[in-house]
């Protein structure tokens, strides 16, 4: 039954062209990250060349090349920004539609007129959303690998492909959490737009507000893959930084940086530990969705405010 519900959801998303829209946006985003990475590469090389010539003309020694230490997968560093920014919003919409359409179209009422438990229904919905995200991110992985191949002019090594796989695996878990937030918002509110805006409120808090409290990151600074270190020596941050391990967007970015080798290395155990809050969040969200679903009345249509 779980497979049936999941298959129905995937079919509904395909018919509504939501699947193709999500896939198109994610792939465009991945290609854009590749183009930006290529552009960044060219700019640094060009600026370094001009700087060397300028300094030589002034009789000064050539500066150290800031690009030599840049790893091959660094050109995808924009993906680390786009996944929490655009990917998470798309995942919210995916989760939102998964439940809202069943509510509005009467599928929910029909399903529960049969011998289907609420947990089975939820498992089917989560499986469907997880499968859609997995297909989309697998396609993004192919585009990313191709970008690396084109820009670096060498076929990605097995190790690099493994790193890309890990990065997209982590991104899948991250997006799944936001799809669950989208579902929960529909289950917890009475109208579709309010559900969407509430889910967006949660996304704003997770993406922009919490990092400012725990690490002093300004909202617009969060949009740049290269962030200048911020002073967090104040007493305020000494207290709030204790909550940093639970700032999932920061942990996601840090772990992604480690995987793509754009951030300083650290022991493997520490990197794995950073992913635990994200996994924990997904589990907690599933539990919340299960509780809300057990009380949810599908005979109630979703309307505007």
């Amino acid at each position: 039954m779980i497979t049936t519900i999941a298959s129905h959801q995937i079919l509904a998303l395909r018919r509504q062209r939501v699947f193709i829209a999500l896939l198109g946006i994610l792939l465009a985003m991945t290609a854009l990250a590749g183009v930006l990475g290529w552009s960044s590469h060219r700019t640094i090389v060009g600026v370094y060349g001009e700087a060397t010539r300028l300094l030589a003309a002034q009789g000064q020694p050539a500066p150290a090349n800031p690009f030599t230490l840049k790893p091959t997968l660094a050109l995808l560093s924009n993906m680390v920004i786009y996944i929490p920014l655009i990917g998470a919003l798309l995942a919210l919409v995916l989760g939102h539609l998964s439940i809202a359409d069943d509510e509005a179209g009467g599928v929910g009422r029909l399903v529960f007129s049969r011998r289907v438990s609420r947990n089975t229904y939820l498992a089917g919905k989560v499986t469907g959303a997880a499968a859609v995200l997995a297909v989309i991110l697998a396609s993004s992985l192919v585009v990313s690998a191709t970008s690396v191949w084109i820009v670096n002019r060498t076929v990605p090594t097995i190790a690099e492909l493994g790193r890309l796989g890990l990065f997209y695996g982590l991104s899948w878990l991250y997006l799944l959490a936001f799809a669950l937030i989208g579902m929960i918002a529909v289950l917890a509110t009475r109208s579709k737009p309010i559900a969407l805006l509430s889910a967006m409120g949660a996304w704003l808090v997770i993406t922009f507000v919490i990092p400012q409290f725990t690490s002093g990151l300004r909202p617009t600074a969060s949009l740049n893959p290269i962030i200048d270190p911020v002073s967090t020596s104040q007493t305020f941050f000494k207290v709030t930084s204790k909550a940093r391990p639970f700032s999932v967007v920061e942990q996601y970015k840090t772990v992604s940086g480690r995987i793509l080798e754009t951030a300083p290395s650290e022991p493997m155990a520490q990197t794995i530990a950073r992913t635990l809050p994200l996994a924990l969040l997904a589990i907690v969200l599933i539990a919340i969705a299960a509780v809300l679903l057990s009380h949810h009345d599908f005979s109630r249509g979703a309307g505007d405010e």
Partner: peptide, 9 residues
């Protein structure tokens, strides 16, 4: 992101 000066921390 495209700003040349923003390529390095």
């Amino acid at each position: 992101t495209l700003d040349a000066d923003n390529q390095i921390p």
